[in-house]
Simulated scan of single mutants.
Amino acid sequence: MIKTKRIQQIKEYVIQHQSVSLDDLVTTFGVSKNTIRRDVQKLVEEGHIQKVYGGVAANHARLESFHDRQTRNQLQKRWIAKDAARLVDDGDVIFIDSGTTTLEMIHFIKEKELTVVTNNLDFIVQALPYTQLQVISTGGQLERKTKSFSSITNTNDVLQYNFDKVFMASTGVSISNGVTNSSPVETSMKEMVVKKGREVILLVDHTKFNKYAMLTYCQLDEIDYLITDDSLDTSYTTFFKKNQIKWIVAPSQDESQQTLT
Rank of each mutant, 00 (worst) to 15 (best):
I2K: 15
I7H: 05
I7G: 06
Y13V: 01
Q16N: 07
S19K: 14
S21F: 02
L22R: 09
L22K: 07
D23F: 02
D23N: 08
D24E: 03
V26R: 10
V26A: 02
T27C: 01
F29G: 04
V31Y: 03
V31L: 03
S32P: 02
K33V: 11
N34D: 08
N34Q: 03
T35V: 12
T35R: 10
R37T: 11
E45A: 09
E46H: 03
H48C: 07
Q50I: 14
Q50V: 14
K51P: 02
V52D: 09
Y53T: 05
G54M: 06
A57T: 11
N59R: 14
H60L: 15
A61C: 09
A61E: 15
S65C: 02
S65K: 03
Q70H: 14
Q74Y: 13
L75K: 11
W79F: 11
D83W: 11
D83T: 08
A84C: 11
A85G: 09
A85R: 03
R86A: 04
L87I: 05
D89A: 14
G91R: 11
V93H: 08
V93T: 15
D97L: 03
D97E: 03
T101F: 10
L103G: 05
E104I: 02
E104A: 11
M105Q: 09
I109G: 11
K110S: 14
E111G: 07
V116F: 10
V116W: 07
T118N: 11
N120T: 10
L121E: 06
L121T: 08
L121V: 15
D122H: 13
F123Q: 12
I124P: 07
A127L: 08
L128W: 05
P129M: 02
Y130K: 02
Q132T: 11
L133T: 12
L133F: 09
V135N: 10
V135F: 13
I136V: 15
I136Y: 12
S137L: 08
T138A: 05
T138D: 06
G139I: 06
Q141D: 10
E143R: 10
R144T: 12
K145H: 10
S150M: 04
S151L: 04
I152T: 12
N154A: 14
T155Q: 12
D157P: 00
V158T: 02
V158N: 01
L159N: 13
Y161I: 07
V166P: 01
F167Q: 01
M168Y: 01
T171V: 00
V173G: 05
V179D: 00
N181E: 15
S182Y: 04
S183R: 03
P184K: 05
V185W: 06
K190N: 06
E191I: 01
G197C: 05
V200N: 13
I201A: 01
V204E: 14
D205P: 07
H206G: 03
H206W: 10
F209I: 07
Y212E: 05
T216H: 00
C218M: 00
Q219P: 00
D224H: 14
D224N: 15
Y225P: 04
I227C: 05
K242R: 12
V249H: 07
A250E: 12
Q253N: 14
D254G: 05
E255G: 02
S256Q: 13
S256L: 10
Q258K: 15
L260Y: 13
T261W: 09
T261C: 10
